[in-house]
Computed example of a mutant assay.
Amino acid sequence: MTGAPATPLLDIRRIYCEPAAAALPRGAAILARFPAAERIPVESHWRIPALREGDPGDYLRPKRETLVLGVKQGLGFRPNGRSADFIAPSTSNGCAMACAYCYVARRKGHANPITAFANIEAILAATARHAARLGPKPQPNQVDPAAWVYDLGENGDLSVDALISDNVRDLVALFRTLPNAKGSFATKGVNPALLDYDPQGRTRIRMSLMPPGLARLLDVRAAPVEARIAALPELHRAGYEVQVNFSPVVLREGWEAEWAALFQALDDALPAAMKPGLAAEVIMLTHNAALHEMNLAWHPKAEALLWRPDLQEEKRSGTGAVNLRYRAAWKARWLARFQALLAARLPYCRVRYAF
């Protein structure tokens, strides 16, 4: 896959490890992959004070150098209806990237590096049972016309997780065997290993895109947008269902011109075979006061765009969190303008949902 980052995202020097995770085959394989890393036993992957109390200005080092190895406890499935029909039990939590707007950073405090879960067999078995109980999808919806779709990467980026273990390969292999279900994950990464997973159309990759100038400021440690776009045809040829996320839409002076340029770059890169089936999600920026305070310590330039009280209002999310979103009446107008621009530039791109 062309355009992979030249500097490795990971230089694992310490692994916080639950003993139960180390005893599982996948946990042992992950530890063997990083033999020089210091191993630090912990009772719970959720309770690691050193990760919660890190130096606010040293935000990126833990993401590059630290890995947590744990056992996923809850194996429930949550209805979704937007990106997927269900949110599946995650095989990881946290991320090596540092997108300035990302809610995942709030889960464990401070930088929240990757936690990889070693009980992959239990997660796979729970997913297979859930799909079997559902049976055939009774009618199409905006998620998919025929298959139940499971979001596999709600709390991380599976393109990066695939650098750590075979969990992602195993997920892709599972969905090859489920006639009524597909896996799905969003990514800002470019990982050539994914091309060898043989998804056979049963895994959907949603590549997150924004104008390159914005991404250089906000998508810290993510693959360049140009590399993400270049990867799309390769992923399609490898057998993935490829969609795009225009996310988040961050408003600033000249936003329509820079998004129009992105749409043109995407149109130029996509082969004709991909265009009729292309679908997209459009997600306007959501921010959070706690994340704002965290960002001020390590990346204040991002906050000049993300923290806009003159344009934003508080709104409680479905999970009960209080977030900042663009003021409702203005947001509706801006979202309509965005969709009109998209329809004019990429008329074949269907918007699955927008909010």
Rank of each mutant, 00 (worst) to 15 (best):
residue 180 N to M: 05
residue 138 P to Q: 09
residue 138 P to H: 10
residue 156 G to P: 04
residue 135 G to H: 02
residue 163 L to K: 00
residue 150 Y to T: 01
residue 106 R to H: 08
residue 168 V to D: 07
residue 147 A to Q: 11
residue 114 I to D: 06
residue 157 D to I: 13
residue 132 A to Y: 10
residue 149 V to I: 03
residue 125 A to Y: 04
residue 150 Y to R: 03
residue 120 I to T: 15
residue 105 A to M: 08
residue 177 T to D: 14
residue 94 G to W: 00
residue 179 P to Y: 02
residue 180 N to E: 13
residue 157 D to W: 11
residue 112 N to Q: 00
residue 120 I to C: 12
residue 167 N to E: 10
residue 106 R to T: 13
residue 103 Y to E: 09
residue 127 T to N: 09
residue 145 P to G: 08
residue 175 F to N: 04
residue 183 G to S: 08
residue 119 N to G: 14
residue 116 A to Q: 12
residue 102 C to Q: 00
residue 136 P to M: 00
residue 127 T to F: 05
residue 174 L to D: 07
residue 121 E to T: 13
residue 188 K to N: 08
residue 134 L to S: 06
residue 100 A to M: 01
residue 178 L to H: 06
residue 163 L to I: 06
residue 177 T to S: 13
residue 97 M to P: 01
residue 172 V to R: 05
residue 184 S to V: 02
residue 102 C to Y: 00
residue 143 V to Q: 02
residue 180 N to H: 15
residue 146 A to Q: 15
residue 130 H to F: 15
residue 138 P to N: 07
residue 181 A to C: 12
residue 129 R to V: 12
residue 95 C to M: 03
residue 174 L to C: 06
residue 162 A to S: 10
residue 182 K to H: 03
residue 93 N to G: 01
residue 188 K to M: 08
residue 186 A to W: 07
residue 188 K to Q: 07
residue 138 P to G: 11
residue 146 A to W: 11
residue 183 G to D: 02
residue 124 L to S: 05
residue 107 R to D: 08
residue 156 G to D: 15
residue 139 Q to Y: 15
residue 150 Y to M: 04
residue 127 T to I: 14
residue 99 C to G: 04
residue 167 N to M: 09
residue 167 N to Y: 03
residue 120 I to N: 05
residue 182 K to C: 03
residue 117 F to T: 14
residue 126 A to I: 12
residue 111 A to W: 04
residue 173 A to P: 06
residue 147 A to I: 06
residue 140 P to N: 12
residue 152 L to A: 04
residue 94 G to A: 01
residue 171 L to I: 05
residue 130 H to P: 04
residue 186 A to F: 07
residue 167 N to C: 12
residue 162 A to E: 03
residue 139 Q to D: 13
residue 129 R to M: 05
residue 145 P to S: 09
residue 166 D to L: 10
residue 165 S to P: 12
residue 136 P to W: 07
residue 96 A to T: 13
residue 123 I to R: 07
residue 122 A to C: 09
residue 139 Q to A: 15
residue 129 R to D: 14
residue 147 A to S: 15
residue 135 G to E: 05
residue 142 Q to I: 14
residue 108 K to C: 04
residue 175 F to W: 03
